[in-house]
């Protein structure tokens, strides 16, 4: 184990996988000479050369589409999106092509590719650079959508993504890049997709979250404990496949659930999760499933407005109390 930041954990995963398999290559905007906007790819160009570390034009559809053509022939391309907001330009390539070819070819080809990069609210990045896309991609069969919340998961899940045979939308959170945590050194320690994890046990309420909102949820749980409310906190880790069994198990114990997401409320991940809880453990519920989400507006620029638009600890605490009828 080493203590690494989330950023370094991702960097480490890239290096280990590129060392391990010459078919792994990475492409993206300003990832080589510039060394990456978030410096995830610093040093890679020098180490692996321009054929494996490809500086592309600003052309997301081009990046993703060419990666698909590479993946079908056995390469394992990693596409870095400078931010996932830009990946909308490549939506046709991701959703109509990458997600579907393995299926409509009747399994004749695999699609081992990763599209990774940061998403979510930053600090005053305003409307076009602050969005969250897990529900958007989570809607489409044929994709894997990873939302790691810790450095260990960022490394272990990225390695799984690179070694897999399906396209992975790997959603990092820029606000987590500096977060430190214990990360396994073993280059073959990989984390599977579709395995949620209970990260804090509690008997009174189940808080379901992922990515940066997990950090928020854990902080809220700590404060709630001071008031005698013991929250069980679950990290979903991947949005697709979505493993809700631990959530159902937890709700059978706590009889109430709060789902926390940063993105907008309508048709979001929390809505899907809440509906699944209601479908599966309806008779266990003593209160409606609560959702904590961002406000339903494009991200404003002004700092005070921005802070009003995203969820905070106190929103989680208030939702927990509503679920407990203690408001």
């Amino acid at each position: 184990m080493s203590e690494l930041t989330y950023r370094d954990a991702i960097h480490r995963a890239l290096v280990e996988e590129m060392d391990r398999d010459p078919n792994v290559l990475i492409m993206g905007e300003d990832i080589g000479v510039y060394e990456g906007t978030f410096r995830i790819t610093a040093g890679l160009l020098k180490k692996y050369g321009a054929n494996r570390v490809i500086d592309t034009p600003i052309a997301e559809a081009g990046m993703v589409g060419t990666a698909i053509g590479m993946a079908m022939l056995g390469l394992r391309p990693i596409v870095e999106m400078m931010t996932f907001n830009f990946a909308l330009v490549a939506a046709d390539q991701i959703l109509n092509h990458a997600a579907k070819i393995r299926y409509f070819s009747g399994g004749q080809v695999d699609m081992p590719m990763v599209i990774r990069g940061p998403q979510g609210a930053g600090v005053q990045l305003s409307a076009q650079h602050s969005q969250s896309f897990e529900a958007f991609y989570g809607h489409f069969p044929g994709l894997i959508v990873a939302t790691p919340a810790t450095p260990a998961d960022a490394k272990g899940m990225l390695k799984s993504a690179i070694r897999g045979k399906d396209p992975v939308i790997f959603l990092e959170n820029a606000a987590l890049y500096g977060m430190k945590g214990e990360v396994p050194d073993d280059p073959d320690a990989v984390e599977p997709f579709g395995v949620s994890r209970v990260v804090r046990e509690g008997a009174h309420v189940t808080i379901v979250s992922y990515s940066r909102m997990l950090v928020l949820s854990l902080a809220a749980a700590a404060k709630l404990a001071e008031e005698g409310i013991e929250a069980e906190v679950i990290d979903l880790r991947t949005i697709r496949p979505l493993d809700l069994d631990p959530v159902y198990q937890s709700v059978r114990k706590t009889h109430r659930a709060v789902v926390v997401q940063e993105q907008w409320k309508p048709f979001g991940a929390a809505g899907e999760i809440a509906a699944s809880i209601t479908e599966t453990v309806f008779d266990e519920l003593d209160a409606p499933v609560e959702r904590v989400t961002g406000e339903d507006v494009p991200m404003p620029y002004a700092r005070n407005l921005e802070l009003l638009a995203v969820p905070h600890e106190e929103h989680v605490i208030a939702a927990v109390k509503r679920a407990l009828y203690r408001d």
């Binding site: 009889h255 309806f282 008779d283 266990e284 519920l285 003593d286 209160a287 009828y325």
Partner: peptide, 24 residues
Amino acid sequence: SSPLARKMAAQKGIDLALVAGSGP
């Protein structure tokens, strides 16, 4: 009544009509 309350009432043989609700 909450789903859980209904389930518990059924198990305990309680008629929910006789129970005062304290929730919203």
